[in-house]
Every structure is written in C-alpha cells, then in structure tokens.
C-alpha cells in the first residue's frame, strides 16, 4: 500500500470527527449570536413545544377537573347550604332591624305622650271579607275594656269592641260598623266618620254650610276622652254635596292603613290630651 494512497472515506470521517467539534466549540463561543441555519429549527421546536405544553395543560386541566368533580359537587352543596343559612339570617336580621325601628318609634311616641298607652301586637283579622276587624294579643287581664281607642303614631286605627281575657277584637275605622266622632281640623266643623270598605271611610252629618275642602285633615274630637283630641283620622279626598240635602258627605282616606299594621297602642286613658296646633300642640 503506497504511503500516499488514502482511503477517502476514512479521511472524510477523520475530518468530520475533528471539524465538527471545532465548529461546535466555535458556535459555543459566540452563543449570543443565533445562527441563521438554526433559526427555523428554533422556531419550529418552540412551536411544537408550545403545542405539546398546551395539549398537556388541557389534558391535565380536564383530568383534574374531572377528578375534582366530586369535591366540587360536595363543596357546591356546602356553599349552597351556607348561602341559604346566610340568606335566612340576613332576612331575620332585616326583619329584626325593621321591627326594632318600628318599636323604637312606638316607644318614643309612648314616652312623649301623656296618655296611658298599652302596646299590642296584631295576631288576626276578620273571618269575612266585608268586615275590617283585627285581633290583638292584649285583653281584659291587661286592662283592656270595650270601646277603648286603638291608634298608632300615624293616626287612628279604631276601637275595641269585643274583649276576651287574653285578646281583644278591634273594629277598624274602615269597618261599616265603626263610628268615630270627628272634626275638620281647619274649620272645626263636626261630623261622624263611618267606615265604607277596607281603604276608605266617610265623614257624615256635616252641615251643608260647613266649610270643608279636599285635602283637609280630619281629626278626633276628643269627646268622652276615648281618643286624644286632634289626633289624625284621615284626609278629605272628595265631597258630595247633594242638591237639596241638609248635609254633605265627605270621603276620607285614613291616615294609616289599618290592615297593614303589626303593632298598635290601645289607649287605656287619653288623659284629655289635646294635640291640636291651635291649642298649643301637645299639652
């Protein structure tokens, strides 16, 4: 074999083995520069990696969601129960807050008044639609008697007409059987308020010449010391003056909606309290 005779394949292999590491070293030394021929592979590789990462993340997410379903369901039920409890508590708290406000107002009214008042809670209403009566949880054992006035801060409610030991039935001023002695606050014209139906009453037996206008306030007369004098009953909504009659009839909208009440006062003794502004407000 001649000394200068080479096996070209071996030469190529040797060169490759020597040159390739050199190239690699060279590349490593200039690592901050990205080579143009590696760029497509970098981009492609990154894209494939992102794809795999995304797929893997999706699979892991779905799997974990599926695996956690039982936990989520249980947690959901627990949360729903908690929410329901909280809602109930919130409802009860709101109710208590409103009741507290109402009772505070009533207490303030009672303390400011010189009347002897008994607070009562409404526990029932009439069996028949055509009658407007309510039942309260105070009766003869609490000092309630027949024909005692019932009122609230806003105005007259009615009066007791049937008293049991532990409860009383109150005839609301809107009941057909209710009659309350009243006067027109502005002109002092006198009449009787009678109930018509659940939402209104009527002031009757006013003289034809009596001065009454729409919007006038109708107040209690204070007769027999049942109601305090000058306590609001309602306002005039319309006037019916027949052509030949001697009297006029006036529609009255009650100052309070008696059927919406939850608490009220029974006047054990009005102590002749006068609430008329003309006689010096509350005396």
């Amino acid at each position: 074999m001649n000394f200068f005779t080479f096996d070209i394949r071996k030469v190529f292999l040797v060169i490759t083995l020597i040159v390739l590491p050199l190239i690699a070293i060279n590349m490593q030394r200039k690592s901050e520069e990205e080579l143009w021929f590696t760029r497509p592979f970098t981009v492609g590789g990154a894209a494939i990696q992102r794809g795999f990462a995304s797929f893997s993340s999706g699979v892991r997410g779905t799997t974990s969601l599926y695996l956690d379903l039982i936990g989520i369901k249980r947690q959901n039920m627990e949360l729903k129960t908690s929410l329901a409890e909280l809602k109930a508590q919130l409802g009860a708290m709101t109710e208590l807050k409103m009741e507290n406000e109402r009772l505070s107002q009533l207490l303030g009214f009672k303390q400011a008044s010189k009347m002897n008042l008994l607070a009562a809670r409404v526990i029932g209403r009439d069996l028949l639609h055509d009658h407007n009566t309510i039942v309260v949880d105070r009766g003869s054992v609490h000092g309630v008697q027949k024909n005692m006035a019932a009122l609230t801060i806003g105005g007259v409610v009615g009066y007791t007409f049937r008293v049991e030991p532990e409860s009383s039935r109150i005839l609301l001023l809107t009941d057909r059987y209710a009659v309350i002695d009243a006067i027109v606050q502005r002109s002092r014209a006198r009449g009787l308020v009678e109930g018509v139906k659940s939402s209104n009453a009527r002031l009757k037996y006013l003289k034809r010449s009596d001065d009454v206008r729409v919007g006038d306030l109708i107040v209690t007369s204070g007769m027999f010391n049942l109601f305090p004098k000058g306590f609001p009953i309602g306002t005039v909504t319309s006037i019916d003056k027949s052509r030949y009659g001697m009297t006029q009839e006036v529609e009255v909208k009650p100052a309070v909606e008696p059927l919406n009440l939850e608490e009220l006062f029974i006047v054990l003794n009005a102590n002749h309290q006068d609430l008329n502004p003309s006689t010096g407000a509350e005396d």
Binding site: R176, G195, K197
Partner: peptide, 25 residues
C-alpha cells in the same frame, strides 16, 4: 247573599263588595 243580608240588617250596608278579594278567595 252577604250583600242581601247586609241590606236587610245593617244601617250602613255593604257599598260595593270587594270583588277582586272575593275572586281570589
């Protein structure tokens, strides 16, 4: 019947029955 008995008995009879309440009831 309520209207009739009211006309018969009461000084201040039923004026207009509360129809809506009666229907629901």
């Amino acid at each position: 019947l309520f209207w009739l008995t009211s006309r018969w008995f009461d000084k201040n009879p039923i004026f207009i029955p509360e129809i809506f309440d009666w229907l629901i009831s």
